[in-house]
Design a binder for these strands. Structure first.
Lengths: 201, 201
DNA sequence: TTGGGTTTTGACCGGATGGTAAGCAGTTGC
DNA sequence: GCAACTGCTTACCATCCGGTCAAAACCCAA
């Protein structure tokens, strides 16, 4: 199905993708059913398939949208900015994305966890290229003595791991912390300290 | 089905659980089918159900086994040891578990990611209790000025996130690093540096 | 109002999947 | 060698699920 044209097509595709995000992120691709998505969307199952040609197609549309926004924070890391502040700001943005878009994070995690064959191309292409580009910048900052010398790629991995953890393992985080905690606020403080100490040259 | 008695029961339950781990960790609960597990195990589907009463039961057995071994590294953190070395050793053991038991890590991740209702009890009970016990120890070390003052629970979260990332996002890690890398060796070095700097009082 | 397009639906299909029944085969203890 | 139990298989069932189809409902311009 080509991109929406009329108002009603626009609105319904959005409703479907919103519902699909809800269900896919909570159940994984195989775990989600069209009936569930239809129910969340408030539409009938055949109606979903009027807008998207298959379950696969809905999932694909979701992943395609996702990847763009997912890489934005890293793209925004400014090669001519102040190194420590830039890395710190990147970490902050990733943490905010985990807080504000946990479903997107879990959709991504579900996908990669299960071999990520639907994302392999994008990961080996776009993502890898962007990481290599930013690794060059980080290495330069290290050469200039403006941040500590570290493996730049594993530095990025650490930011992904530490921030996405709060979205992907949300249930565990909340269960262990118990009542009366603001996981993301605490994580912000903790990670601020961590990267301050790690990056100091 | 009660615990195995005869030799053949012992052997076949093990074969089934091994196959189930393979399939569940790669596909999630809903994504796995009894036929797949049966094929990997080299047994017929009805034979699986002779040993385990249902798909659910196989999964439960797997999770029950898992939790014990999963908590071992943290249990082993010695309250009367040298603080920095103890935390570092814990991180090392967790990283080794990611390397040597990635399927177990992914089984766990799949489960928690999808709301973790099958693990909720264990997480809110055993896991939380153990974390609180170790948090007391960490706080004491901080009070004694033997490691840096940090939120002890988020310190543990960071170890989980950073080590499990290499198992759970293995596909991404390998795709981004490309050929000719030993992810776990590099991660070991990186995390050694990270926690050395983070923990220094 | 009418006619043509768009949107929605109920009924249905075929294959996959978890699980069962009933009997056959193997093993073990005597 | 034989009974009795354990282990295993073939055939089958019911349900779920992705997807189809034909027709109904809706919308809107002329």
């Amino acid at each position: 199905m080509p991109r929406p044209r009329t108002r009603i097509q626009q609105k319904n595709s959005e409703t479907i993708l919103e519902a699909a995000l809800e269900v896919f992120s909570a159940q994984g691709f195989r775990g989600a059913t069209l009936d569930q998505i239809a129910e969340v969307a408030g539409l009938s199952k055949p109606n979903l398939l009027y807008y998207f040609s298959s379950k696969e197609a809905i999932h694909q549309a979701l992943l395609a949208d996702l990847l763009d926004t997912w890489l934005d924070p890293l793209r925004a890391m400014n090669p001519v900015g102040e190194p420590v502040a830039e890395v710190m700001a990147y970490m902050r943005r990733k943490l905010e994305m985990s807080r504000d878009f946990p479903r997107e994070s879990r959709l991504f995690a579900n996908e990669v966890l299960q071999g990520g064959h639907r994302l392999r191309e994008a990961i080996e292409g776009e993502l890898k290229a962007l990481v290599e580009e930013k690794a060059v910048v980080l290495r330069r900052w290290m050469d200039e003595g403006r941040i500590a010398r570290l493996d730049p790629v594993h530095l990025l991995f650490s930011i992904w791991a530490l921030t996405q953890h709060y979205a992907d393992f949300d249930m565990q985080v909340r269960a262990v912390l118990g009542e009366g905690h603001d996981p993301y606020a605490e994580a912000g403080d903790f990670l601020e300290t961590l990267y301050t100490r790690l990056l100091r040259p």
